[in-house]
């Protein structure tokens, strides 16, 4: 049975796309066929992590939403991007299919100006799962709350909410948790990202869980290696033994166990 997983945060810069790319890669390494949709139409970016050249991006999610193509035509097999670095594993039956949003300024402006049919987005997710025989569909959302984000949350089997240990993130995360609960997401978990390594990560996890009443599946420390990589590739492929990779593997294992 296929599962839809949304990765969301109330504020930008929490590391959603990097976490999404790593979880996607780990699920594919476990032999799953994984689709990734970049619904961050206003500020797309996950295609960079998977090394998808903008020049080769003939079709994007925008084209599907404007009725120019079937959604699977905007899907790119980026599995080769998971075959680099010491953490690469031959994908035995697994694969990664990315549906990027357009990076062209005019097309971003058009969506913002004219909008689109949200129902099409919902249909598109299901068509993707069916036509690409996906085991998982991960949705990399736009931060904050807008129509497509709420739709993604509403139809998700699992919702991962990212937050930083930052005063600006705390209140927004409470709103997002509230919305996830209102929309009856069956499996809702928090990831705390970019925690200072000097923090007591265990104590931070406990405090966050007590505050929101939601389990924290990972507390990821800020690390120089991630900053150095600069979204140029998928972190776990280059640092397979890093504590961040280990923590994300536990999240992937929980998704697989659902």
């Amino acid at each position: 049975m296929s599962r839809i997983v949304s990765i969301h945060s109330f504020r930008g810069g929490t590391g959603k796309s990097n976490v999404t790319a790593n979880l996607t890669t780990m699920l594919a390494q476990a032999g799953k066929r994984v689709g990734v949709v970049d619904t961050d139409i206003q500020s797309p970016g996950i295609h960079v992590i998977f090394g998808l050249d903008e020049e080769k991006m003939d079709l994007a999610l925008n084209d599907y939403l404007w009725g120019k193509c079937a959604i699977e035509k905007a899907a790119y097999d980026v599995s080769p991007a998971t075959q680099v670095g010491p953490g690469s594993v031959t994908l035995m039956g697994g694969g990664v299919y990315l549906i990027p949003s357009s990076i062209k300024a005019g097309e971003i402006a058009k969506v913002l100006r004219e909008g689109y049919d949200v129902g099409l987005l919902n249909d598109g997710f299901r068509e993707l799962i069916s036509r690409l025989s996906l085991d998982f569909l991960l949705i990399d959302t736009h931060p904050g709350l807008n129509e497509e984000t709420l739709l993604s949350i509403a139809i998700s089997d699992a919702l991962l909410i990212l937050m930083r240990p930052d005063q600006q993130d705390y209140q927004g995360t409470a709103v997002t948790v509230e919305v996830g609960q209102k929309l009856d997401v069956p499996w809702l978990r928090l990831i705390v990202n970019k925690a200072l390594p000097s923090f007591d990560l265990g104590a931070l996890k406990k405090r966050v869980e007590e505050t929101y009443g939601v389990p924290v599946v990972a507390v990821l420390p800020e690390c120089e290696e991630m900053i150095r990589l600069g979204s140029s590739s998928v972190f776990c492929l280059h640092y397979p033994d890093h504590p961040v990779t280990h923590s994300l593997r536990e999240v992937a294992a929980q998704l697989l166990a659902q």
Binding site: V111, E114, G115, Y116, D117, N146, E147, E178
Partner: peptide, 18 residues
């Protein structure tokens, strides 16, 4: 039946109810 998005506008007035 979902309503089409007619351009992106802040939703905070709607979400205030939440």
């Amino acid at each position: 039946r979902l309503a089409p998005i007619r351009g992106h506008t802040p939703m905070f007035d709607r979400l205030r109810a939440v």
